[in-house]
Design a binder for these strands. Structure first.
Lengths: 111, 111
DNA sequence: TATAATTACTTACATAAAGTAACTAACTAA
DNA sequence: TTAGTTAGTTACTTTATGTAAGTAATTATA
């Protein structure tokens, strides 16, 4: 059979990136550290899933979480080196999307 | 509020790529046209979802489907130009995964 | 002639993942 | 005392995916 063996590293990276929201969270963090509520409202992700994703990304060493004991408490999420290393990849998605994706705009009547 | 507006093209591309299996299907097709059963068995995706993904990718103009009326019938899936344009992105995922992903190998005892 | 095999799916049903909305904890401000 | 803020968590619903069997068209085999 013509079965290609897929590199397990690639497969692991891909399964990480193909979880819903993961890519967008990283993309947002490329512009600097962000708070929970900022991420939540800027991408329309639910708090439940955002919390889950940030935990996963922290476990994988892609995101770090820092607590500033102000009032009210400020918690910032930012990218580690491993996370920052995803920038070229994100740039490629930007490029491809600009070259190939069309945005169908809604006409006023169907809004 | 410090809400970044995300480019709708980028968001569309990302939501496509962050569907389970989509990336791997494209990756497999970068090595040449493939049949349904080959994709199915080489990546461990279920037939139900593979069928769904191939239809979506065809609709989006990323994959094309060609029928060869042999016996038994041969149907080949391959990338369009839009799909082939994803190669640099896939290369970046490969690079990143090689630099940053560790594969934990199972010791014989815990197999 | 009947049975099995092949490919490319589809269908019905079960489980897992994600969305929704309300709730908690710790604190401050009115 | 009530309300507001941030960063979550919890219980419940909806959606997505997995599983396994079924279909249709054709050929090969017993």
């Amino acid at each position: 059979m013509d079965t290609t063996i897929i590199c397990p590293r690639f497969e692991k990276a891909m399964s990480m990136l193909s979880q819903r929201w993961t890519g967008l969270v990283i993309y947002q963090l490329l512009t600097g550290p962000k708070r929970f509520c900022t991420l939540e409202s800027s991408m329309g992700i639910s708090g439940r899933v955002l919390s889950e994703r940030l935990k996963d990304l922290e476990t994988q060493g892609i995101v770090k979480r820092e607590v500033y004991p102000e009032t009210p408490v400020r918690i910032e999420y930012s990218l580690t080196d491993k996370g920052l290393a995803l920038e070229p990849l994100m740039k490629e998605i930007e490029k491809w999307s600009q070259d190939w994706i069309e945005v169908e705009e809604k006409s006023e009547s169907e809004q």
